[in-house]
């Protein structure tokens, strides 16, 4: 529900990113599948305890990705290096883009910035963010004593 509301608000305020984007990538890629030129593109999943973000970063060396986490903000930045062009080679297609990128996301919930993990595999970056205690559904744990 919350997400739907948030999306509506973003549309009304002219933003097309659910996460409330502050900055855009400055890669030179006009040929994206969808209308926005933001890089990297993100999907997000949620369960009771955490948020999982995935991003498509084909051709980016995982070592060239930098993440910065604040309780309500996540910044993904880095650089995608191109292949060094050799003189005499002739390019017939050049659709891929290279360069620096940066996305600054305002998260619609607070996260525990000490509990963040990230991995990169097959050109997909996965970021796991633990929700801050106040965002989690309240649970009362019952300890069973055997004595």
């Amino acid at each position: 529900m919350y997400w739907l509301d948030k999306r509506l608000i973003n549309q009304l305020s002219g933003l097309n990113q659910l996460f409330g984007e502050l900055d855009r990538s400055f890669g030179s890629a006009p040929r994206e599948r969808s209308s926005t030129a933001a890089f990297p593109k993100l999907n997000a999943w949620k369960n009771d305890n955490s948020i999982l973000l995935t991003a498509e970063v084909p051709g980016v060396d995982p070592q060239d990705i930098e993440l910065e986490v604040q309780p309500d903000k996540l910044t993904i930045s880095g650089e995608r290096h191109g292949r060094a062009k050799v003189e005499g080679d002739s390019y017939q297609r050049s659709e891929r883009s290279t360069g620096k990128f940066r996305r600054e996301l305002t998260l619609p919930f607070r996260v525990d910035s000490d509990k963040v993990s990230a991995s990169c595999k097959n050109g997909i970056l996965s970021i796991s963010l633990a929700l801050a205690a106040e965002e989690k559904p309240k649970r009362i744990s019952v300890t069973v004593r055997n004595d």
Binding site: E56, P58, S90, R93, E95, R96, G123
Partner: peptide, 19 residues
């Protein structure tokens, strides 16, 4: 998305397929 380039000896492709 692809890059295709030709060298004297070969054709080369870089094909973006995340995942």
């Amino acid at each position: 998305k692809v890059d295709i380039w030709e060298t004297q000896d070969s054709y080369n492709l870089d094909v973006e397929m995340p995942g």
